[in-house]
């Protein structure tokens, strides 16, 4: 036991708890229960340890010890690769795949959350050492608020208006509102689609949003999330029964065609509006210099 024991212990515990808070398993069921979680809790513990030890190392004038943070960085980049590989492998067996953009978003989140853990235990240990345990607790609360803020990105409900719409056939062409979705030849399939299909039109609230919802990865994410939450009327070997999203080129609206097992319009709107806006899909045409001159 020395004067660093309690601060380091405090930092490690707070860091690990922070990782636990960030590891909320929701409707996505990822990471999967227990085993997947243990991997991330263990990594979170390591991250917390690294963050907590960094401060005493500096105080003891062991500046070279800081270099191990670079090892941590490469370690957590590996986490991102691991997540990406696992999810890509599994995606081939999903009835409605997540899509690469969604997977990349999840992988990035896993990496960055480990850095948040390092940051949390670093500042809490620091404040414990410089001031006392009470200040450290206040800092912990501030960190918690920051983490919650960083964790929750915007959702689709913030950027688009969602309107339920009719699914219709014009000859063999399937339409949601006036947006062409696909050609379905067999009358039998058409009947199934009219019976089980649901249509929604997402209307972008601003010009920037048009390019975001046009992103194919973002569209796939919508389909995946809806299929997870409401079920999907499809099986392998029925490629005609596929949820799809197409775009109206004139005004950037997108037509969402889904085949839910649970045909509840209110619920579907709620699910669509809580689909995360993928970081990698966000575009800001209004920030471009060409647009600002006007």
């Amino acid at each position: 036991m020395n004067e660093y024991t309690y601060p380091i212990l405090f930092g490690v515990i707070i860091g690990t708890i922070a990782r636990m808070i960030m590891l909320k398993t929701d409707y996505r069921q990822y990471p999967t229960y227990l085993h997947g979680k243990i991997i991330h809790l263990a990594l979170g513990f390591i991250a917390a340890g690294l963050g907590a030890v960094a401060v005493p190392a500096i105080m003891e004038k062991e500046f070279t010890a800081i270099t191990f943070l670079t090892i941590a960085a490469s370690q957590f980049r590996e986490v991102r690769n691991m997540e990406r590989n696992t999810l890509s492998e599994l995606d081939g067996y999903e009835l409605v795949p997540r899509g690469k953009t969604y997977i990349e978003g999840i992988a990035v989140a896993f990496e960055s959350r480990n850095y948040l853990v390092i940051f949390t235990s670093l500042v809490t240990t620091l404040s414990f050492l410089v001031w006392n345990v009470y200040v450290a607790i206040i800092v912990t609360i501030i960190c918690y608020i920051i983490i919650r803020k960083i964790m929750s990105g915007s959702t689709l409900g913030d950027i688009v208006d969602i309107e339920p719409s009719n699914v219709t056939f014009d000859g063999a062409g399937l339409y949601v509102d006036n947006i062409y979705i696909m050609n379905i030849g067999l009358p039998e399939r058409q009947k199934e689609i009219l019976e089980y299909g649901m249509g929604f039109v997402l209307i972008p609230k601003t010009f920037d949003v048009r390019s975001t919802i046009a992103n194919l990865g973002q569209r796939q994410a919508i389909l995946h999330d809806v299929s997870v939450s409401l079920g999907v009327f499809r099986d392998s070997g029925t490629p005609a029964l596929v949820p799809l999203i197409k775009r109206d080129l004139d005004d950037g609206r997108i037509g969402v065609f889904i085949l839910p097992q649970d045909k509840d319009v209110e619920k579907a709107i709620k699910v669509i509006s809580s689909v995360p806006v993928l970081e990698n899909a966000i575009r800001m045409p209004s920030e471009s210099k060409a647009n600002q001159k006007e």
Partner: peptide, 24 residues
């Protein structure tokens, strides 16, 4: 239609109607 439905299931493809007398 019957042939198209069977082929759709067997080949794992989608039947598209090009006209009333032609499916692919």
């Amino acid at each position: 239609e019957k042939v198209a439905a069977n082929l759709e299931a067997i080949l794992d493809g989608i039947s598209h109607a090009l006209s009333d007398e032609l499916y692919i």
